[in-house]
Simulated assay, not measured.
Amino acid sequence: MKFAVIVFPGSNCDRDVIYVTQDILKQPTRKVWHQDTDLGDSDVVVVPGGFSYGDYLRCGAIARFSPIMRSVLDHAKAGKPVLGICNGFQILTEVGLLPGALVRNRDLHFICDRVPLRVEHPERLWTNAYGSQTQITLPIAHGEGRYHADAETLAQLEDQGQVLFRYCRPSGAVDEAGNPNGSLNNIAGICNEAGNVLGMMPHPERAADPQLGATDGLALFKGLLQSQLAAV
């Protein structure tokens, strides 16, 4: 399976993703500069974390106009997998591939930590390697990670099983005490209605190397690979 990792001015997690897909999973991977327009024969597109365009105006607001995003839109509309991590999630909401918005954290502070998450809907493309309501731990690093949407959008996300990751307490309880940034419904990651586009604020690529003693994020990538290979 061939991965394309989009690189914007200010991206800083592109190499982390490439290390996972290319070095750990041994999959062909290439960087795609934001001014390019061709994704080639890529099977999966990853929009990584960082600070695209220095987060000027607001996170992802300028990156949405990069030439490569037209190709990412076409890739997603063709039903192919697109993963947006942290700043990548913000970009996917700005470009309209995912509903809602990511706004300033509840306490207006940048948060860098490892947090427990509950995995929802293990039948989905991105979560099929996790069990039902599995609890995992992933790193977060963001200042504008509080998910917000209107009541109708939230109800649709919940009703259609599009909330794939929720912040929770170590006990697994989903409540305000387990919500690091004030996201509505403790939302940490959502997919589109078709299920091929995922946006998440936590960083699975930073918890995917056995040498670091943290591999909860690796299952996301492995599950994707298994699903795609089984479909061939």
Rank of each mutant, 00 (worst) to 15 (best):
Gln162Val: 12
Ala141Pro: 04
Ile136Gln: 03
Leu108Pro: 02
Ile91Pro: 08
Leu218Val: 04
His142Asp: 02
His121Glu: 09
Ser132Trp: 13
Val197Trp: 07
Gly199Cys: 05
Pro170Gly: 06
Ser171Leu: 07
Val72Trp: 05
Asn128Cys: 11
Lys222Ala: 05
Ala101Tyr: 09
Arg70Ser: 13
Val45Pro: 10
Cys168Leu: 06
Tyr147Ile: 00
Thr215Val: 14
Tyr19Met: 14
Gly50Met: 01
Thr37Trp: 00
Asn192Lys: 05
His75Phe: 09
Gln228Pro: 06
Lys77Leu: 15
Gln35His: 11
Asn186Cys: 02
Val197Tyr: 11
Arg169Ile: 06
Ala177Glu: 03
Gly223Glu: 08
Gly217Val: 08
Ala151Ile: 15
Val72Tyr: 09
Glu176Thr: 13
Tyr147Gly: 00
Ser71Ala: 13
Phe51Met: 02
Ala208Lys: 13
Ile187Ala: 02
Gln35Ala: 14
Thr137Ile: 15
Gln211Trp: 14
Gly223Pro: 08
Asp55Gln: 04
Lys222Val: 04
Leu97Pro: 08
Asp23Met: 12
Asn179Trp: 06
Met200His: 02
Gly199Glu: 00
Gly100Tyr: 12
Arg15Trp: 03
Pro204Asp: 01
Thr37Tyr: 01
Val82Ala: 07
Lys80Met: 14
Phe89Val: 02
His75Asp: 07
Val174Leu: 07
Leu57Asp: 05
Pro28Asp: 05
Gly40Asn: 04
Lys31Ile: 12
Phe65Ser: 08
Ala4Cys: 03
Ser66Leu: 10
Arg146Pro: 09
Ala173Trp: 01
Gly145Pro: 03
Asn87Ala: 11
Arg106Val: 14
Gly195Leu: 10
Leu73Thr: 08
Ser132Thr: 15
Ala207Asp: 01
Ala63Arg: 04
Gly217Trp: 03
Asn181Gly: 10
Gly143Met: 12
Ala219Val: 12
Ala231Phe: 09
Leu154Arg: 05
Val82Ile: 02
His75Glu: 05
Cys168Ala: 07
Gln228Glu: 11
Val5Pro: 06
Gly182Ser: 08
Glu123Gly: 12
Glu123Lys: 07
Glu158Asp: 12
Gly199Pro: 06
Phe3Arg: 10
Phe3Gly: 13
Asp107Trp: 10
Ser227Leu: 12
Cys112Ala: 11
Gln35Phe: 04
Pro180Asn: 04
Val82Cys: 07
Pro9Leu: 09
Asp38Ala: 11
Gln160Lys: 15
Pro116Arg: 10
Ala129Val: 09
Gln162Lys: 03
Cys112Pro: 04
Leu117Glu: 02
Ala155Asn: 02
Asp216Leu: 10
His203Pro: 11
Arg114Val: 15
Ile91Cys: 13
Thr134Arg: 14
Gly131Ile: 04
Pro180Glu: 01
Ala194Phe: 13
